[in-house]
Design a protein around this nucleic acid. Structure first.
Lengths: 290, 290
DNA sequence: CGCACTCTGAAAAATTCTTTTCATGACAAC
DNA sequence: GTTGTCATGAAAAGAATTTTTCAGAGTGCG
């Protein structure tokens, strides 16, 4: 086998599955800040990765190099190629891809969305929402549309671990009235509604408001009609070089919220997570015995 | 004396007059194709310059370095500085927010994840996966774990619109064997498995492989055990300043794939979407009348 | 529980690299 | 011509790096 045409990075990636724990650790370390991290002596990179020098030797041989010097020679060539050709590298995101590859165009678009969205997001709103959702006296209800249902579910799954009293509304709108029936004043309804806004969500929001619930809406830059009924609204930039809208930035906000909420009640959450671990363990055991 | 602020190149130039014939010859050689020419061992660069190794040692000491290793360490630093640091870091993403606000810290982390992931993703792999999933003769099966189930669902929902013959596996693993029963050779199983890898997914993957299915795995940088059974694997960077892992970049890849797939069969997809519109319309009408 | 197996790093061995020593030769000054 | 100085590289010495060996730890499996 020849290693010639492929980059060292490629070789590492293509063998990654076959690497052992320590070797993966080493590979990570090499890929992090690649290729400069591999410039030093075998001792240095072993130390940086927290593995022994024999591990380094074994890995590079597994990758198809004759030994460490051979491995390093290849790296040097790549460094040379990279440096002598300054236009390359980071004009593009994915390496070895034309600047017009979908991955690169998507990355550009998403970064743009993220920046625009964050410019628009008021951190005071963000903090208010976080503290609303941290309040365990309030029941939480999550609901999404056809596409955004997955986001609602994602948010819900995390919140369910972090705190009690959370509910995911079924995708089918026919069951919604029963949920509204259970809402009390101060409960919070989190709605995901993007483009092709779904009429039913407005009805749901109205009903929930009448029950005294607070409403939080995740929507796009054009704002769902449900936003008018909301206490707080996140207007997220969703445009992508695609026939579909992008949910990446919405998910970003959701994850940031999850962290903010969890962080504000870490002690309690920690206990819950520990208990949950125990429950998973039991289930597994249960299954084995059964 | 300190060499700190000046580059090695500067130092050589400023001492050039004081160098002897052989040393000048060496200096020329180093400056030619700088700084890569100084990456190898002392023997190598001595040979390249056509001088002896003692000459090299004498020169670097004359330049103010402690010895050859010291000289080379400085060169490495310069190479690193040249290669890395390409994208200017935003001090602040969200306006009116301290740089340490969770939104800003999250944004930094996600951008980092995105960059690292894209450096690692082989566009050839990406394209292969896209064309695999575009092939309508192959049945598609999506499955995720507890947290990643939402991602599987998101992917599935889109693919269901784009093409026929797609299935979302239930969250409950007890129903999986029945799905495997229906898989035929050439079908594709898309698995999402991140951190806390779920043992059942490996069993599922094994069974699917035995039925002749191709397997595609979305996992994290440490790679799910299911990846060993996979035809293609996406290793996504998932670390966030949070107790939880981030799925943002995974979703990014999914969306890019959706676009790539849809794009490759746009004509057919367009028809399907039109039909779907009609169906939605009917349902709405139906409900109104009912 | 015990066996076989793999992974891992400590330590030794082998190799290579770096530095020093020193002999040679060139050249200038006397 | 002799002498001293300096530059240079061969070779030895010294110091590191790289590779190999090997034993212990861990893991999976019957």
């Amino acid at each position: 086998m020849t290693v010639a045409s492929k980059t060292v990075s490629d070789v590492i990636h293509s063998h990654f599955g076959a690497l052992t724990r320590a070797e993966k650790q080493l590979a990570e370390s090499l890929l992090d800040n690649y290729p400069v991290s591999g410039l030093g002596s075998i001792t240095t990179i072993a130390e940086n990765a927290g593995v022994s020098t024999p591990t380094v030797v074994r890995m590079v041989q597994k990758l198809g190099f004759k030994g460490y010097p051979d491995f390093q020679a290849h790296l040097h060539q790549e460094v040379e190629a990279t440096i002598s050709n300054p236009i390359a590298k980071h004009d593009r995101w994915a390496s070895n891809a034309p600047g017009t590859h979908i991955l690169n165009r998507f990355a550009d678009a998403i970064i743009g969305n993220l920046r625009q969205t964050l410019t628009g997001v008021d951190t005071a709103t963000f903090d208010s929402v976080a503290s609303l959702l941290s309040d365990r006296k309030r029941g939480l209800y999550f609901v999404g549309g056809r596409i955004t249902g997955a986001l609602a579910e994602y948010f819900f799954t995390h919140m369910q671990v972090i705190r009690p009293n959370t509910t995911l509304l079924s995708a089918n709108s026919s069951g919604w009235p029963q949920y509204v029936l259970n809402m009390s004043a101060g409960d919070v309804l989190i709605i995901f509604d993007i483009r092709r806004y779904e009429q039913e969500l407005v009805s749901l929001a109205t009903a929930a408001r009448n029950s005294g619930a607070e409403i939080i809406v995740f929507t796009d830059q054009w704002a769902s009609p449900a936003a008018k009924l909301a206490r707080h609204t996140f207007r997220v930039q969703i445009e992508a070089p695609s026939a579909w809208d992008s949910s990446v930035v919405t998910l970003f906000i959701v994850e940031a919220l999850i962290e903010a909420i969890q962080n504000s009640t870490w002690d309690e959450t920690k206990e819950r997570m520990k208990t949950l671990e125990g429950l998973f363990e039991q289930t597994r055991l249960f299954r084995k015995l059964g």
